[in-house]
């Protein structure tokens, strides 16, 4: 009797469970079958009519049915939960092509990007980065660099003077003298900084711009070392495939002097409008430190030699990032800066 009833409860419960599609419905089934007033509890109430010797067997039967139903419920619950989750996830689908949310980061100045690149390269070669005063004594800007009082380079039209002795430096080369006067040899330094020339503002001129000076002084420094160092620098800055060309030139404070060209990074040296058909682009001036300059700064040219170079930072920035007007660098339009 009980056995049939149990079987019926089991069958009915399993059928109901199979038909359920919500967790609520499953719960109702659990309550109606396994709950305090559920059908299984009702059956157990009839246990008192079961002869004592059969009770364990019947009890076992009831238990089996309960376990089976619990398992079915758990199974069904899992299925429904999975389905519900699937539905929720499906509903939560987003348009991944919508715009990103970004922190409004600021941007670097092109000059600074170029400067940091150069610093990185030279620090890697063991160079110190130093700086010197922009408002400078005539001696450091000119005389100590082999540019005596009557030299055309000293002409007032190029130099801003504060008074007869103090001026705005026209070149970072003045830092060479400070480095040499410090008396610490060997020297391997670069010195970035602002310089001033009396040029009216236009697309290619600015009365203030930046240079990066370089100086190496030690025993046995050669012109070959100068070439090797700057060739290495050019390859690191413009790419491994870059070729360099050193042309004779003149600077009062170096001898021999040179200008370094790099193979055009647009056409690779074949000649294009960017390099004006030359295949080469002028990058920097350099040379062996003039022995007289060493001497004036208290370094014995019989023992030591050195090389120096100067790079126009704006020139590198304009070339490298293809900026066609120098004025953009000092206007600070955020639409310009955002591109860097």
């Amino acid at each position: 009797m009980i056995k049939e009833e149990l079987e019926k409860i089991r069958q009915e419960a399993q059928e109901h469970i199979a038909q359920s599609d919500t967790l609520d419905r499953i719960n109702e089934i659990r309550v109606s079958v396994l709950g305090k007033k559920g059908s299984l509890k009702e059956i157990l109430k009839g246990m008192k009519n079961v002869p004592a010797e059969e009770r364990p067997a019947v009890g076992q039967m009831v238990n089996d049915v309960r376990v089976q139903i619990e398992e079915a419920i758990a199974e069904a619950q899992k299925t429904i939960e999975r389905r519900v989750q699937e539905q929720r996830l499906a509903a939560e689908t987003i348009d991944v092509t919508l715009p990103a949310k970004r922190l409004p980061m600021g941007h670097s100045h092109p000059n600074v990007i170029a400067l940091k690149e150069m610093e990185r390269i030279f620090i890697g070669m063991g160079y110190e980065v130093i700086e010197g005063p922009e408002v400078e004594r005539d001696y450091y800007n000119f005389e100590a660099l082999n540019i005596p009082a009557d030299h055309p380079a000293k002409d007032e039209q190029d130099t801003f003077y504060i008074n007869g002795d103090i001026l705005l430096r026209t070149q970072t080369s003045s830092t060479q003298i400070h480095a040499m006067e410090s008396g610490r040899i060997p020297i391997r330094m670069i010195a970035p900084g602002r310089v001033y020339r009396s040029d009216a503002v236009d697309a290619t001129h600015s009365p203030t711009f930046h240079q990066v000076e370089g100086l190496v002084v030690d025993k046995g420094i050669t012109f070959a070392d100068l070439k090797g160092t700057l060739d290495d620098f050019a390859k690191k800055l413009f790419g491994e495939e870059t070729k360099t060309r050193f042309r004779p030139h003149h600077f009062p404070f170096t001898e021999p002097s040179a200008e370094m060209d790099v193979s055009c990074f647009k056409c690779g040296g074949k000649g294009c409008s960017f390099c004006k058909g030359e295949g080469w682009i002028e990058i920097l001036g350099c040379g062996m430190v003039h022995p007289h300059v060493l001497e004036m700064s208290g370094i014995d040219p019989e023992v030591y030699s050195g090389f120096a170079f100067g790079v126009g930072l704006e020139r590198i920035a304009l070339l490298n990032y293809e900026i066609d007007d120098m004025r953009l660098l000092y206007e600070n339009d955020v639409r310009f800066l955002k591109q860097f």
Binding site: F122, G126, P186, D225
Partner: peptide, 11 residues
């Protein structure tokens, strides 16, 4: 083209 020899410096 060579690189300077001699003593190295901390950059």
């Amino acid at each position: 083209m060579t690189l300077p020899g001699g003593s190295s410096v901390m950059g």
